[in-house]
């Protein structure tokens, strides 16, 4: 049974040969469709609020365009196979995979490919059980929660543990595959994780690979992009850098990017959180302060970082 509103598909789809010249000449109102779904708004918001990520934005625009055209085709009575929407997001930590997944859910909802547009983010622990017979109900429970929306599986490769052949992860994968196939109308699955590990995962699970239509790779941010992100985050939190602080932060990032466990935007957020902590401590120690002091992060707050002391 399908619950998707198919109001537009009033008549049975037509084969290409059956189309008359008049029908072919009839104009299809793409603009009205774009307006109606307000898809531009979401895409623009994506452009505005996410720094960098050029290839990702391109790919999302392509997918959105395809879905829009598919809907238009259906509305004029052309045969249109239902698209496969399951995706994989690969990239290093902190490159915006979860954020983009949230937006993707919104886009799919606007275009009518998922009914609710919510995002359920899970990891291996939410899907795989502790003992025999525990995995299937657990996975199904998560899938049921995600129905009508998008299921985001972070670090999906941990589902598959080749070194332990009795690992329950395999069971979760099988249920997942089945639902991805039979409930394509009900939910969209996005798998996310590091590029190399995901590739390895897909190599050992060819069934999974063939059910995923879109592979999107998230590049690392450049230094300038990270600074831009930092400025954006600060503005959201109601702080600002002094020029000296900004320079210090640039030097901080240069060093931090060379260090292990650098997690792109997440590292920026953590660094800013620590800077706020030091700023608060500095003001507290001084006793008196102005409103300007409260919103300003100074170079001193950043230069005290461990990153500078080690080198």
């Amino acid at each position: 049974m399908t619950l998707r509103p198919e109001a537009e598909a009033a008549e049975a789809p037509k084969a290409l040969e059956a189309l008359t010249p008049e029908e072919l000449a009839r104009s299809a109102d793409l603009k009205a469709f774009v307006r109606e779904t307000a898809i531009d708004e979401v895409l623009d918001q994506l452009d505005r609020e996410l720094v960098g990520l050029k290839p990702v934005k391109m790919k999302i625009r392509e997918i959105a365009a395809l879905l829009l055209v598919d809907r238009l085709r259906r509305s004029v009575g052309l045969k249109t196979p239902p698209p496969t929407l399951h995706m994989s997001f690969t990239g290093n930590p902190g490159t915006g995979k979860t954020t983009v997944a949230l937006r993707m859910a919104q886009i799919l909802h606007r275009l009518g490919y998922v009914r609710k547009g919510h995002l359920v983010a899970v990891t291996r622990d939410d899907l795989v059980g502790q003992y025999i017979g525990h995995t299937a109900p657990k996975t199904k429970e998560v899938l049921k929660r995600a129905m009508g929306g998008v299921l985001f599986i972070d670090e999906a490769y941990y589902l598959y543990r080749p070194e332990n052949e009795r690992d329950y992860g395999q069971e979760a994968i099988e249920i997942l595959l089945q639902v991805m196939e039979t409930h394509r109308d009900d939910l969209v699955v996005i798998l996310a994780g590091y590029k190399e590990k995901m590739d390895q995962f897909f190599r050992s699970n060819p069934g999974m690979r063939s059910r995923i239509a879109h592979h999107i790779d998230f590049p690392d941010y450049t230094l300038d992009e990270l600074l831009e992100i930092a400025r954006l985050m600060l503005r959201e939190q109601g702080y600002r850098f002094t020029p000296a602080a900004e320079e210090a932060f640039r030097r901080y990032l240069e060093r931090r990017m060379q260090m292990p466990h650098f997690a792109n935007a997440r590292s920026v957020r953590n660094a800013l959180d620590r800077a706020r902590l030091r700023q608060a401590n500095r003001l507290f120690a001084r006793g008196a302060c102005t409103v300007a002091d409260l919103v300003t992060i100074d170079a001193a707050d950043i230069l005290q970082s461990r990153v500078f002391q080690d080198g």
Binding site: R115, K116, L143, K144, R145, M147, G148, G149, D186
Partner: peptide, 12 residues
């Protein structure tokens, strides 16, 4: 079933 968003899970 708690935390559901969509009735298709119940119908299933």
């Amino acid at each position: 079933m708690f935390d559901l968003q969509d009735p298709s899970a119940v119908l299933y």
